[in-house]
Design a protein around this nucleic acid. Structure first.
Lengths: 203, 203
DNA sequence: AATTATACTGAATATATATACAGTATATTA
DNA sequence: TAATATACTGTATATATATTCAGTATAATT
């Protein structure tokens, strides 16, 4: 943003105050009255300067057609979006990060660690569609019925979690076209990366 | 707050939209263009009714001198969550707002206006479940296949939009347990509040 | 020394805008 | 049955408003 003069700043403040007070922007005459100018052209030239410097927009030929340009906020580091990496677990290594999303940490209640972009339709009936982002919380506190991000060997998948016995775990899809994954922990190693605590869909 | 008619509500929403879009309130002519009226007096009488009922203030003799009595604060990054109101459209009036959600305005690409909490499972196969929040963008730019928030009489619903002919519109659920809603525009009035541009699920 | 930006006054004007007036029509209320 | 509210079209007009033009003056650049 370019430099601004003291007088131009007064005009800018005047516009802001006027909108706050009345709900609509001032006319040239209004600005003159507020700031003690005696000619509407005084306001006009200041407005043109403010427009040129990018502080306001002026809609030509339109009464009160002044709008404030809000400076774009510098986004903070948000939460990483991670793709389902074919081999290996979804780590937070930078090469796996698609981009980051700016949102409050408490967005999904108790907090979460990253977003995972969903591939496939195996959880369709749970309302989880392809390309959705599920908010994943890294935890081992898993209960039956939770939607978990699980890694079996080098495969990462999202499913309902059901512990059938101390040795047997079922990973259950929400789509009748897919079959349950039945795991005997004595034969196959499984690692729970975390559980889904929320979802975001960008159309 | 007193009762409000459907047409008056449209005018009220139109004013809110216009301010959000441009930064300043509309003229009578602007309202006519937005809502298809052919006489500025159509807007005028609605404005007077809204003023009488306390929804707006009108500054006499002042261009664009309309101000909303209960304006929705456009916070830096707070968006209102609105419940499906039985009677009338989901307005941004404060009594309809559940709470607000902090998230960047550009969260869902081109921007949106509010969140609507979904009731029922009529859009289940589109991955929209009960209690999900859909991000709604207020627009009349609807294409076939879009997921829209539509109001028929006093009923608000979320469905796929399909225009079959200039006079016939189908609202199609994404759930085989629900039937298509077929609307003849010559018999039944329909108002498109906006379209879904994203979704958030809080577990 | 010439140009450009800032900072005003003052007058003039095309048009953008609010608003009144005259109608038509339907539905609701007293 | 009359009165009132809603919901419009259509025309007209006083005035509110943006915007240009003609000046004056100071300070900063080129």
């Amino acid at each position: 943003m370019k430099e601004i003069t003291i007088q131009q700043n007064k005009v800018l403040d005047c516009i802001q105050e006027y909108i706050n007070k009345t709900g609509f922007p001032p006319t040239r005459a209004n600005i003159c009255k507020e700031l003690g100018f005696k000619s509407p052209n005084s306001a006009e030239t200041h407005l043109r300067a403010l427009e040129k410097k990018g502080f306001i927009n002026i809609e030509s030929g339109t009464s009160r057609g002044i709008s404030l340009v809000n400076p774009v906020e510098i986004e903070e580091d948000g939460f990483p979006i991670i793709g389902l990496v074919a081999a290996g677990s979804p780590t937070l290594a930078s090469e796996n990060i698609e981009k980051t999303v700016n949102c409050p940490p408490t967005f999904f209640g108790s907090g979460f660690d990253y977003f995972l972009r969903v591939r496939g339709l195996s959880m369709k009936d749970a309302g989880i569609m392809e390309d959705d982002l599920i908010a994943v919380k890294k935890t081992q506190d898993i209960r039956n019925g939770d939607i978990v991000v699980a890694r079996i060997e080098d495969e990462v998948t999202v499913k309902y979690f059901e512990r059938k016995s101390p040795e047997v775990v079922h990973l259950i899809p929400a789509n009748e076209d897919f079959k349950n994954i039945e795991i005997d922990l004595r034969e196959t190693e499984i690692h729970i990366e975390g559980k889904s605590v929320g979802l975001i869909r960008e159309n």
